[in-house]
Design a protein around this nucleic acid. Sequence first.
DNA 1: ATGCAAATAAGAACGATTATCATTCGCAGC
DNA 2: GCTGCGAATGATAATCGTTCTTATTTGCAT
Lengths: 141, 141
Amino acid sequence: MHQPEHLKSAGLKSTLPRLKVLDLFENSKERHLSAEDVYKQLLGSGEDVGLATVYRVLTQFEQAGLLVRHHFEGGKSVFELNKGDHHDHIVCLQCGHVEEFYDAAIETRQEKVAAGLGFAIRDHALHIYADCTKKKCPHKR
Amino acid sequence: MHQPEHLKSAGLKSTLPRLKVLDLFENSKERHLSAEDVYKQLLGSGEDVGLATVYRVLTQFEQAGLLVRHHFEGGKSVFELNKGDHHDHIVCLQCGHVEEFYDAAIETRQEKVAAGLGFAIRDHALHIYADCTKKKCPHKR
DNA sequence: ATGCAAATAAGAACGATTATCATTCGCAGC
DNA sequence: GCTGCGAATGATAATCGTTCTTATTTGCAT
């Protein structure tokens, strides 16, 4: 792993905390992590980063376009690697796992509706909160 | 205005703060109000209610089905009178005004997508953040 | 009117996040 | 490879929205 280029092109110095956070997002099982998730996972790996630094780095990465921030219910911000695509989210009410999906029909309908009301869409968020219908929820929190 | 019945049927005593909050939602220009909006408007009207009471009452009203709570970006909860219908929201990025809409096609597509992924929808929120395309944004903050 | 459970107001407490600031680090220039 | 300086960090205080605690007040059935 040598993403220093990512950081460099974003105008950010390649520091240890930043490399660690980026690495975490690229190698973690869960794509969607909160600031505290990141902080705890780093501590768990023996890394010594401050919580304040985690928040700072996440915000910088968001501004640099490396991460995308989401506001699901529950108050806390959740981040994921920016794959460049747009997608919406289903949040499992049982385990908190976040599934992604994209539906072209929904996207175009949104544009139509907004245009009809005299708005130009800048951004949107579709969050579905649902129960997994499989017998046992397959995702562990 | 005599909504004591609303309160009564919800199992809530008809107290002054509760009546005032309910009245505010029924007579305010903006349908969507945060706890602080409610608190400030009441203070402005010379009413003397505590902020804690506002939060308590809003939560009770939500549980009683009188109000619906929304989580837009920005962290704070926003409430509106429960009209019984479901609708989604467009938030004007200029003035913060919230416009409501309902699109059957979007709703059905959501169900299909969720079912296809093995989820049973419990709740969902579609928030569109957009710019008003009219020359001057007609809504004042 | 009286009493008591329920509701209130004020402020403390809380969780998530941001700001402050002294110390440390990355890295360009020597 | 060393130096120096501005940027980045970590510890902690501060902030913001919200909830909890508790002593006091209120609605309302009697």
